[in-house]
Amino acid sequence: MDAYLLDWANLLLRWLHVIVAIAWIGSSFYFVFLDSSLTPPEDGKLRKDGATGELWAVHGGGFYHPVKYAVSPPVLPPHLHWFYWESYSTWLSGFALFLISYLWSPSVYLIDPRVMDWAPWAAVTTALAFLVVFWLLYDLACRFLGQGERGDSKVGIAVALLVVLASWLACQLFAGRAAFLLVGAMLATTMSANVAMWIIPGQRKVVAALKAGLPVDPIHGQRGKQRSVHNTYFTLPVLFAMLSNHYSFTYASAYNWVFLVLIMFAGAAIRQFFVLRHGYKLGRNAHPWPYAAAGVVVLLGLIVWLRPAPVPAAAAPQAVSLAQVQAVMAQRCVMCHGEALQSKGVRLDSADALKQHAPLIYQQAVMSRVMPMNNATGMTEEERALVAQWFRAGAPVE
């Protein structure tokens, strides 16, 4: 019953997390598009009132005319929509999911003795420290390096180095699956902290100044814009990290941290293409196709790099019986894939089930070697070879 209820909590939290993440990313992408597509107002009154850009758009049978005031509008409207619940809801639901999926059972999900064999409390504490320490270092980089003409470039280099270091360290400490997810959670925490600690407080100061009839300091808008731009480049890397746990070939290699860094670079490069293409259409910059090309080339290189190598002939009996395979499954796999617990909807406690899932068993236990998870049940090389021989013989069940 406990496992059943935990599965329901996992399902509902994952569902909520996806919904609010779509809302947050969607609004973020829209405002980046909006900023890149604004043109100087044609109406003289708008320019006189301080408007810096406008856009005409058609959607859903109607026409829209958003206008941007870079510092402040001439009059503060009575109804002002704030964009922050999407961010906070995404982080809270994501952290709750991380809690019940990884932190609740660190010995299963966080710790891989082949990587580092340490106490569960230490693994959990270190995982939480990743979220906090990365944000603090990132925030310091923005504060002290983000000033001046080349401030954005300095911050970009510093953040890139921090991400590389964090990716390497996570993969040296945690199971590959957990390391990838942790790096994604680390970046997502920084994105939400940008909203909570800088973007929204800055906007509240602007609104308070307008209500008090005081001059508005443009620094709040500049800081908010800086953090919003960082958030948009974090988006695709975070989404990959969150999805990667479903694809074991991404985190199972010996150099998984290199793969993680490269694929995050590819995501950021492709996002840069979409950010700049709107400005290109308005004649503001050159065509940004090199960014998309760079991202695609990196992805193609990763596909070639991770292609499965030919598996040498296994040192197993020429003829493997169903009983031998069932004995291995019963000892190593059925506790998570049996009648009582059917992880991922997979059962391996019958001949028909073994036949049905034979390709999946071969891929997970022999090719990628990620199952049993972190080899918690101690599957031996001889047992993997036996499973491989059975599969190559056509996975007979008679």
Rank of each mutant, 00 (worst) to 15 (best):
A316C: 07
V311F: 14
L236H: 09
S27R: 14
Y280D: 00
A122F: 09
Q331D: 14
H246W: 13
Q363P: 07
V296A: 14
P77F: 00
V71P: 00
P106C: 06
L128D: 11
L236D: 09
K154F: 03
K154A: 12
W289R: 13
E398N: 15
D7L: 05
L13S: 00
V183H: 02
A241F: 12
Q364L: 12
P66Q: 05
E383K: 11
K68N: 11
K68Q: 12
C333L: 04
W85P: 06
P73Y: 10
S167R: 02
Q318I: 12
L322T: 09
W104A: 15
A127G: 01
L262S: 03
W305R: 13
F273E: 08
A294Q: 10
V32C: 10
Q324K: 11
G62F: 14
A70G: 04
E86F: 07
V32M: 12
R227T: 04
L173R: 07
A9F: 04
Q147K: 15
A127T: 00
G26C: 02
T126Y: 03
P218E: 00
H17V: 00
L11W: 04
W168I: 01
P290C: 08
W121N: 09
A193S: 11
W91S: 02
G338W: 06
V397F: 08
G62N: 14
F259T: 13
L182T: 05
P310H: 02
L302V: 07
A9L: 08
V298T: 15
G60T: 06
Y102Q: 05
L260Y: 03
W91D: 04
A254R: 08
Q147Y: 05
Q226P: 00
A141F: 03
K154S: 12
I111G: 03
A96E: 01
Q324R: 11
G62E: 15
K344R: 15
W305E: 01
A385Y: 04
G44H: 10
R177Q: 15
R369N: 05
F33K: 14
L239R: 11
A178V: 01
Q342C: 10
Q364F: 06
N245D: 14
L299T: 12
F95V: 08
G156F: 01
M116V: 08
T39E: 14
D152W: 07
V297C: 11
L386P: 04
H337P: 05
T90D: 03
G156D: 03
F234M: 13
A286M: 10
S36C: 13
R384G: 02
A241P: 12
K205I: 02
H220T: 01
L299W: 04
L131Q: 06
